[in-house]
Write a protein that binds this DNA or RNA. Structure first.
Length: 598
RNA sequence: GGCCCCGUGGUGUAGCGGUCUAACAUGCCACCCUGUCACGGUGGAGAUCGGGGGUUCGAAUCCCCCCGGGGUCGCCA
C-alpha cells in the first residue's frame, strides 16, 4: 500500500504517529510561506502542512500541487497549535506535518467543483461521472447503497435464505414491458432477452426445492425513463415456499424496519406498517402508492355536484364520470397566478380544468361563511349551502381552498393525487425524515383493457387468485381478488409481490382467460407449466426496487443519484456514449442487417 | 407520440428590444503573503449568449424550426 492510514480516519489518538497518506488535493491554501493542503481520500479530509523552513523540498513540491492532483505525503500527526483548530472538520484538531511529498499524478482543472456542493447540469455530471462520484454527496450515496445491500444479504442469510444467480441471457416473453433483445451468433435469426425480472426463474427454484431464495438482481425493461425508473435497475428478488401472505408481509416489515433503523438511525419510522386495501387507497388518495406522511384526503362530491347548476359537473356525471375534491388548509388567499398553476397541472394530466373555491381569507367555522366570502370563478353556479356541503364533506374551515375535479374517474383520481402531492410539497407537509411504509393489499386480479377488451393481469399472470374467488374466474373475472401485495413508502411503490399459482391446471386457466392460445402458452410458458407438474410447492414472494429504497433513504429525488453509472432520460450512458453503432462485421456475425428507417 | 420547464466565459447565475464593447460570484493563470481552512491581496486571460432561419434600423432578449438536457402523461406483465 502506498498509504498507512486514511485521511479521514486520523484523530487525536494518532498524535505523534508517523503516517503516509495518499489521496487527492481537495484544496490548497498557499500563504507564500506555509502551504496548507486539504488532502482527501474516501474516508475524509485532513490538513497537511508544508513548512519551507523545516522541509524546503516538500514546500517546493507543494507549490506545484493543484486541485485534484494525486499526491502522497509522509509526516507526523500533530495537534494543531492552540486556536487554529477547525471544529467544522472531523479531523480539525490535528494536522500532518509533511516531511516527504510526492506528486503521483497531475490533474487538469476539473470541469466542475469536486469540493463544493453546487447544482450542476446533470448531463455534465454524467459525462464526467467518475469526477461526479468523487463528490461527497455521491460518495455518501454509494456507501449507503452498499450498506443497504449488505444489510439485506446479512438479514436474509440469517433467516435461512440463499442467494442464487439466474441468467441474464434468457427468453423473450412479449407480454409486460418491452424486452431488451440480444441477437444470437450461434442461432441465426434467434434472440435472447434480458430479464425484466427473474420471476419465472425464481418460481422454478421453488420447484427445485430451494425453499428460501433471494437475489440482488439486475432487471431490464425497454420502456421510457422517469425520475424513479431506469432501463436497467436492481431488485431485491425473493421467493419462499410453503408461505402465505402474512409470512411475506411480516418478513418485509421486519426487514425494512431493521434496515431503516440500521442505516438511518436518526429517522422516524411509523410502526407497525399500515395496511390499505387497493380500493381504500384509491378512494382516499386516488393512487395505489399514497404518501401517508400527511392527510389531504380525497372526498367524493358527486352527489352534491349533481345538485348544482354547474353544467360541467352535470355533464361529467351524466357521462359516467365523478366529481371529487381535496381541501387545502389555509390557502384561501391563493392568488390568481397560483390557482392558474394548479389549473395547468390538472390540464396537463388530461382534465378539462380545475374548480377552485376559496372559502374566505381568515379562519373560523364553516357555518359562518357568507356567499360574499366565497371566491371562485364559478361561484355563481353554487348556492352557499352547496358550497358549505362541499366544504363540510372535505372537513374545511374558513380560509381553506377547495380543489375540485370532474370527469372520467381515472383522470379525476390522477389529478387529485398529483394536486395532493403538489400541495404537500408547497406546504411542506411531508417530513423528509419520516418513513411511512404501508402495505397495499386486496388488489383485483385482473383489469380490463378498454382498447382491446381483453382481461389483463393487474400484476402478472402468475399471481394466485383468492381461493374463494376462483369460481368467479368463469362468471365475473372483475370481482376476483388477487393474492397480490405492494409495499409503498412516502409515495413510491418500493416492492410488489404475490402468492403464486403453483398448479398447471389453474395456471393454464388463467392464461386462457388472458386470451392466450394453447400454442402461445406452450411456446412461452411450457417450461413453467411442465415444472408445475413435478411437485411444485405452494410459494410466493416479492421484489423490491433497491434503487428506489436507497433513493428514499438518501433523501434524493431521482434514482440516478444512487446509481453509479445511470442512463439519462434517453436511455443513453453519457460516460461511455452508449449505445453506439457497431461494425458491419459484428452485424454480419449476428446475422443482422439494419433496416432503412424513414 | 403529447404537454411543461431549461440551455449566457470552465462552473453557477444576472441581463429579457438599443448605453451588452455582455455583468457578478467562483474557478483558472501570474505575482505578493508563515496559521489558513470557502485563506487574503493585486493584476490578467477567458463567452460571437445551444444551432439555424425569421421579425426589426437594431436581437442574448421577440417569433419559427432543429439539437441537447430535465419533469411528466401515455408506456412500465
Amino acid at each position: 500500500m502506498l498509504k498507512t492510514h486514511s485521511c479521514g480516519d486520523l484523530s487525536k489518538k494518532d498524535v505523534g504517529a508517523e503516517v503516509t497518506l495518499a489521496g487527492w488535493v481537495d484544496r490548497r491554501r498557499d500563504h507564500g510561506g506555509l502551504i496548507f493542503i486539504d488532502l482527501r481520500d474516501r474516508e475524509g479530509l485532513v490538513q497537511a502542512v508544508f513548512n519551507p523552513d523545516s522541509s524546503p523540498d516538500c514546500h517546493e513540491i507543494a507549490s506545484r500541487m493543484r486541485s485534484e492532483y494525486v499526491i502522497k505525503v509522509s509526516g507526523e500527526v500533530a495537534l494543531r497549535p492552540k486556536g487554529t483548530e477547525n471544529p467544522k472538520l472531523p479531523t480539525g484538531d490535528i494536522e500532518v506535518i509533511v516531511h516527504s511529498a510526492e506528486i503521483l499524478n497531475t490533474s487538469k482543472t476539473p470541469p466542475f467543483y469536486i469540493n463544493e456542493e453546487v447544482e450542476l447540469e446533470e448531463s455534465l455530471r454524467l459525462k464526467y461521472r467518475y469526477l461526479d462520484l468523487r463528490r461527497a454527496r455521491m460518495r455518501k450515496n454509494l456507501l449507503l447503497r452498499h450498506r443497504v445491500i449488505k444489510f439485506i444479504r446479512d438479514f436474509l442469510d440469517d433467516k435461512g435464505f440463499i442467494e442464487v444467480e439466474t441468467p441474464i441471457l434468457i427468453k423473450s416473453t412479449p407480454e409486460g414491458a418491452r424486452d431488451y433483445l440480444v441477437p444470437s451468433r450461434v442461432h441465426a435469426g434467434k434472440f435472447y432477452a434480458l430479464p425484466q425480472s427473474p420471476q419465472q426463474l425464481k418460481q422454478l427454484l421453488m420447484v427445485a426445492g430451494v425453499e428460501k431464495y433471494f437475489q440482488i438482481a439486475r432487471c431490464f425493461r425497454d420502456e421510457d425513463t422517469r425520475a424513479d425508473r431506469q432501463p436497467e435497475f436492481t431488485q431485491l428478488d425473493l421467493e419462499m415456499s410453503f408461505v402465505e401472505e402474512e409470512d411475506i408481509l411480516g418478513l418485509m416489515e421486519e426487514l425494512f424496519t431493521a434496515m431503516v433503523e440500521t442505516v438511518r438511525p436518526e429517522s422516524k419510522i411509523i410502526k407497525p406498517f399500515s395496511r390499505l386495501s387497493y380500493a381504500e387507497a384509491m378512494e382516499r388518495y386516488g393512487t395505489d402508492k399514497p404518501d401517508l406522511r400527511f392527510g389531504l384526503e380525497l372526498k367524493d362530491l358527486t352527489d352534491i355536484a349533481a345538485q348544482t347548476e354547474f353544467a360541467i359537473f352535470r355533464s361529467a356525471i351524466d357521462q359516467g364520470g365523478k366529481v371529487r375534491g381535496i381541501c387545502i388548509p389555509g390557502c384561501g388567499g391563493y392568488s390568481r397566478r397560483q390557482l392558474d398553476e394548479l389549473n395547468k397541472l390538472v390540464q396537463g394530466l388530461g382534465a378539462g380544468g380545475l374548480v377552485t373555491i376559496a372559502l374566505g381569507a381568515g379562519g373560523g367555522k364553516l357555518d359562518a361563511l357568507t356567499i360574499e366570502e366565497v371566491k371562485s370563478v364559478v361561484a355563481k353556479f353554487f348556492t352557499i349551502d352547496q358550497v358549505k356541503q362541499m366544504g363540510q364533506r372535505l372537513e374545511a374551515e374558513k380560509g381553506d381552498l377547495l380543489l375540485i375535479v370532474a370527469g372520467k374517474p381515472e383522470i379525476v383520481d390522477i389529478c387529485l393525487s398529483e394536486l395532493r402531492q403538489e400541495m404537500a410539497k408547497r406546504l411542506e407537509l411531508a417530513d423528509p425524515n419520516t418513513f411511512a411504509f404501508s402495505f397495499i393489499i386486496d388488489f383485483p386480479l385482473l383489469s380490463k383493457n378498454e382498447e382491446t377488451g381483453l382481461w389483463e393481469p393487474m400484476h402478472h399472470p402468475f399471481t394466485a387468485p383468492r381461493e374463494e374467488d376462483i369460481p368467479l374466474l368463469d362468471s365475473a373475472p372483475e370481482k376476483v381478488r388477487g393474492r397480490h401485495y405492494d409495499l409503498v413508502c412516502n409515495g413510491y411503490e418500493i416492492a410488489g409481490g404475490s402468492i403464486r399459482i403453483h398448479t398447471s391446471g389453474l395456471q393454464r386457466k388463467l392464461f386462457k382467460l388472458l386470451g392466450y392460445s394453447d400454442e402461445q402458452v406452450e411456446e412461452r410458458f411450457g417450461h413453467l407449466l411442465k415444472a408445475f407438474d413435478y411437485g411444485a410447492p405452494p410459494h410466493g414472494g416479492i421484489a423490491a426496487g433497491i434503487d428506489r429504497v436507497v433513493m428514499l433513504l438518501a433523501g434524493e429525488e431521482t434514482i440516478r443519484e444512487v446509481i453509479a453509472f445511470p442512463k439519462n432520460q434517453n436511455a443513453a450512458d453519457l460516460t461511455f456514449d452508449a449505445p453506439s453503432p457497431v461494425s458491419e462485421e459484428q452485424l454480419a456475425e449476428l446475422h443482422l442487417r439494419l433496416r432503412e428507417e424513414r
